[in-house]
Nucleic acid binder design. Structure first.
Lengths: 311, 311
DNA sequence: CCTGCCCACAACCAATGGTTGTGTGCTCCT
DNA sequence: AGGAGCACACAACCATTGGTTGTGGGCAGG
C-alpha cells in the first residue's frame, strides 16, 4: 500500500460505474471483500474518503467525484503506455544477412503462407554475428539468421537450427574443374578458394576454417571491402580460383561471367543457418515464424557434413 | 505482476535517467536486486525487453525508448490524480450543477487558457443551493455556479454575476409551435411547460416562478426523481408540453426525439449564473478563475429580462 | 590475465492481497 | 414494529509477491 495502485484505481472506477461494491467485484472477478480492501487501501494512500457507503451501494464523495476524471485518465494513460510497446503492433523485423540466400527464401515462403503477418526483412550485413546479437538485444530486430553454435549464446537469446544449405563450388568457365558435374570436398584440395567475409566475423570464418581443416582445403576470406561483384569478377577470369555458395542462394551475377555451380557430395557440406531470437520477445509473428521454420525444416542428406560446433 | 505497476514504471524511468540499475536503486532506496526484479517484471508484463544490459550499465532498447515518454506521462498523471484530492494543496474544485450547461463550458474555456491551473469539475446536482453553500463553507468545494440573488448570502460567501444564458423553448416535433422560428415569452402563455428541478430547490423554482408570473406562463417543476431523460421523452411525444433550456446548454438526447429549440426574444429571458466562492479562500486558482470569468463575461442583449432579485 | 564493476539468479522471509466466514447497519416489506 | 434481505466491513487464514542477503557470470580496463 506504498503508493497509488493501478488495480485499486481500476476498482474505484468500476465501483463508481456500478454504484456498488458487489457488482464491481463481479465485473472484476474478485470477491466483494477484495474490492472493499482495495478501495480502503486507496483511500488510505490518498488520505481521503472516496465513497459514501449506504445500505444500497456506494456513491462517490466530493473527493471521489474530483478524483474520478483523474482516475479515468490514469487508466487511459496506462493503456496507451502498454500499447506503445505492445508486441504485434509493428511488423516483425527479421535480419537475413543477405537478401538472396536461403533464409530470405524461407521468409518468402512464410509470407506467402501467412499473409496476415507483416514481416520486414532487413539486412544488417555480414559484418559480425555479435553486431546482430546486439541489435537483437536492443530490440532493433526480432530475429536473425546466423551460423552460430547452439551453445554459448548471450543471455536472453535462443537459437534454433532451421536450415542447412548444401554448398556448391562456383567456378569460372576457364577453371580446371569447370566441366565436372559433381565433386567430393576432397577433390577440391589444392585449389584456391576465396570466400567473401570479414575476417573478424567469427561466423563465416569459423565455418570455413572447419571445412578447410576437415578436407585439407585452402580457403581464404577476402575482407568486407572486397565486394561480391569483385569476387565474382575475379573468379570469372581465373582458371584456379573458386568460391563456395549455398545451392539455394539466388545471387545474381552478369550472364557474361558464365559461372558454373558444381555440387559437392560425399560428404555434402551443409552451411548451417540458425534462427536466433530473444526469449522475451512476445511478438505473435515470431512464434508463427519459428513454428513455420521448424515445420518446413528440410531433412539433411544422409552424407551431410557440418562442423562439430554446429551440431 | 498482474498488470502494470506504478513502482515498476517509476523504477524504469530512474534506470533510464541514471543509466544503470545500481544508482537507480540507491535513488529509490532499495537494493540493486529489487530494481532488477521490478524491471524484469515490467518487461514480462509488457512482453518486451526494455534495457540492453552491458558491463557498464543499462541503456534502453528501442522499445524502452518508445515506452519512456509514456512512462513519464504516467507518473505525471498519477501525481495529478493524487494531487486532485490532496488535503491542503489540491486542485481548484468547482461545482457546476450539471456538466452540460453554460458554466461548465465557461470552465472548459478557463482550463484551455490556463493550462497550469488544475481545475476539477464536480456536480453536486440540482438539489438545493443551500447544500452547495454548506459544501462551500465546509471547504469541500472552492466555488459553485448558482442562480441566486446577489444579496442575502451567508456570511463568508460572495457571489459574482458572470454568465447569463438566453432561454430557448424546447418542443417535440408534434408540438403546436414546432415550426415557429422565434417567439416572445408572451406567445408561450397557455402552453404547459415542465422544467426539471427539485421543488425544494429555491434556486430554479424562484427563477421560473418569477418568469411565469411576469409573462403569465404555467411552469411546473417536476421532481428530481423524474430524470432528464424521462422529461425529454415526455416532450418528444407531446403536442402541448414544452421545456426551457439554456441556449448554450449542450445536453444530449437521442436524435430520434427530433426536438427543436425555439429562441425567445422580446424580451429575451436570461438565466443568471452567479459564481459563488468563499471570501477567505486563498487558493491561487480561484482568483485567476474569477478574473477570467469577469473578463469574458458576455454583454447582455438590449431586451434582456431577468427577475428583479437577480439584478 | 587479473581486478573491478554491474547485473542476474537463488534462497529466504516479511508483507501483501486474495479467499472464506461472519458481523453490523440500513431499507423495505409485511 | 419487526424481520428478511441486501450491502459493506471486519477477522482469520493462506498463497503469492516483492523485498532482502549471498553469490555467480560476463565484460571492460589495467
Amino acid at each position: 500500500m506504498h503508493g497509488v495502485e493501478i488495480e485499486a484505481v481500476r476498482t474505484f472506477v468500476a465501483v463508481v460505474e456500478f454504484g456498488q461494491f458487489r457488482e464491481a467485484a463481479a465485473e472484476l472477478r474478485v470477491t466483494q471483500q477484495a474490492v472493499s480492501k482495495r478501495v480502503a487501501g486507496l483511500e488510505r494512500t490518498l488520505g481521503v474518503t472516496l465513497f459514501v457507503r449506504t445500505a444500497r451501494g456506494a456513491r462517490p464523495t466530493l473527493d471521489g467525484q474530483a478524483f474520478l476524471p483523474h482516475a479515468r485518465e490514469l487508466l487511459r494513460t496506462v493503456e496507451r503506455a502498454a500499447a506503445s510497446v505492445r508486441p504485434g503492433s509493428r511488423a516483425l523485423r527479421v535480419d537475413v544477412l543477405h537478401r538472396r540466400i536461403a533464409p530470405a527464401l524461407a521468409l518468402h515462403g512464410f509470407r506467402a503462407s501467412h499473409p496476415g503477418t507483416d514481416v520486414d526483412v532487413v539486412a544488417l550485413g555480414d559484418s559480425d554475428a555479435t553486431y546482430a546479437m546486439e541489435a537483437l538485444l536492443a530490440g532493433d530486430i526480432d530475429a536473425t539468421f546466423r551460423a552460430v553454435p547452439g551453445y554459448d549464446l548471450p543471455r536472453g537469446i535462443r537459437a534454433e537450427r532451421v536450415l542447412h544449405d548444401p554448398l556448391d563450388l562456383l567456378v569460372g568457365p576457364r577453371h580446371q574443374l569447370a566441366s565436372v558435374r559433381s565433386l567430393t570436398p576432397a577433390d577440391v584440395a589444392g585449389h584456391r578458394i576465396w570466400v567473401r567475409g570479414d575476417k573478424r566475423g567469427a561466423e563465416w570464418a569459423a565455418y570455413y576454417d572447419g571445412l578447410g581443416k576437415a578436407f585439407g582445403l585452402r580457403i581464404d576470406a577476402v575482407g568486407p571491402d572486397f565486394g561480391t561483384e569483385a569476387l565474382m569478377d575475379a573468379i570469372a577470369e581465373s582458371d584456379a580460383l573458386a568460391t563456395l555458395v549455398g545451392s539455394r542462394d539466388r545471387h545474381v551475377w552478369p550472364d557474361t561471367h558464365d559461372l558454373r555451380r558444381i555440387p559437392l557430395h560425399g560428404p555434402t557440406p551443409l552451411y548451417p543457418h540458425s534462427f536466433l531470437y530473444r526469449t522475451g520477445d512476445r511478438h505473435p509473428g515470431l512464434a508463427a515464424l519459428l513454428q513455420h521454420l521448424v515445420r518446413t525444416r528440410p531433412a539433411p542428406p544422409a552424407d551431410a557434413w557440418t562442423p562439430s560446433w554446429a551440431r
